[in-house]
Design a binder for these strands. Sequence first.
DNA 1: AGGGGTCGCTAACTTAGGTTAATTTTTGGT
DNA 2: ACCAAAAATTAACCTAAGTTAGCGACCCCT
Lengths: 234, 234
Amino acid sequence: MQTLSQYPAPRPPGGTPSQTEWGNNDILGIAARPYKPHSILCRQDDEEDTIFIIKSGWTLLYRGLPDGDRQIIDTPLQGDIVGFRSVPGPRFASLAAITDAAVHPIPRKALTDLILSEGSFGSKIARSLARTNAIVAEHLVNVGRRNAMRRTAHFLLELEERLTKVGLSAEGGYDCPLTQNELADILGMTPIHVNRTLRELRRAELVSFKTGHVEMLNRKSLIKLAGFEKEYLS
Amino acid sequence: MQTLSQYPAPRPPGGTPSQTEWGNNDILGIAARPYKPHSILCRQDDEEDTIFIIKSGWTLLYRGLPDGDRQIIDTPLQGDIVGFRSVPGPRFASLAAITDAAVHPIPRKALTDLILSEGSFGSKIARSLARTNAIVAEHLVNVGRRNAMRRTAHFLLELEERLTKVGLSAEGGYDCPLTQNELADILGMTPIHVNRTLRELRRAELVSFKTGHVEMLNRKSLIKLAGFEKEYLS
DNA sequence: AGGGGTCGCTAACTTAGGTTAATTTTTGGT
DNA sequence: ACCAAAAATTAACCTAAGTTAGCGACCCCT
């Protein structure tokens, strides 16, 4: 498995807690904490030494610039580990929930101790980090070398693939709580241009992005346009 | 320590091999292999399962696009670990040397076995990965949300800081083998615009970038222009 | 039910950065 | 010392994306 997304395994809301490799729904004895939409889990420059493991919901990892701009670095989803750092000290990015979310806040020390005492755990973390690396790297390629259309298309395809892996995508599309503003901060463009671009993609009958839902109209052409290769997400 | 750059410790060429935490100049019994400038250490889509630890020299980690464009993701230097992946299978990026370089090619299996058997090693890898994450994330912020001047300034400051950490930077500047073309592929812009931008930076007496050497003319103003905060490199 | 927010959408205009093309300088090989 | 190739540089022009501005459609308050 590529992510830790199987811990805890996806299950229908309200179902009985399933036994997972973590043993139960706690991670290191820490229960998932609920967060409201738009709540901030941590801020860049926080000294507080917590790592977050997402259990459910959508979150944004971003870095704000002095002039008020921000760049969204990743959209951590179910199973993703966020905020692992090489040293204690201030973080460099903020994490916010955009939907209701359940997240395990793990003290860094607890995690590093576990890594030291149990090799298999370290390799799990390392794998998760390697995957994040790949995602952010591809994101960089996207922003650095693809134009608005391809860039947007590529991101929407990435989202679909990631959601599929955690069982949150249907055949023809997927639910997506992102606003066009947030999309702009992900893609490194202005909201106005995002709007234009989404219109184009809709007119070309490739994808339709509208509040709450993304519909794949012609996945094949979209993949071709974006030059999307999903391997980096494995 | 933040990177593995202290293993082996930098030493004058021709000197006696210094004893390091690795025990000697080998890593997992593997000696550093020399690479010529412009040689390619691995290609994206390679199935071969090797991780690289840079001993000396400059390298580029990049991803090529079908249309011939490429985005350079990172410039791994002395001590950096490159190519750690979550699963066996094709890589998603290529690695090339741009100077003479010495690099330890480590089979993935050897490294993961070691992680499993020795916790402290896993945490070293995890820390290195976390640092790479931070660097690539900041790179993304740079390309996504800073204009040509700030972006270029920011990158040149990052390089200085990273080189300083491995003892490869002097007071007023540092040696840098990057061409303007390569700079363009790092910064997600065209070589022509890189040239324009460097000219501006030189005229403004902030930095002077010319073949082989970067000279800091006014570091304070440059840092201010770029909004550079070096903490993410720790 | 009125009012302040955010969000989506569009149009008109501006600009940073891309494109094309050509010249000079530097580098590396023999 | 000579040649070929790569790297740097500049100018003129063009376009993708940014900026500014304005208008409805929904929220969620109280």
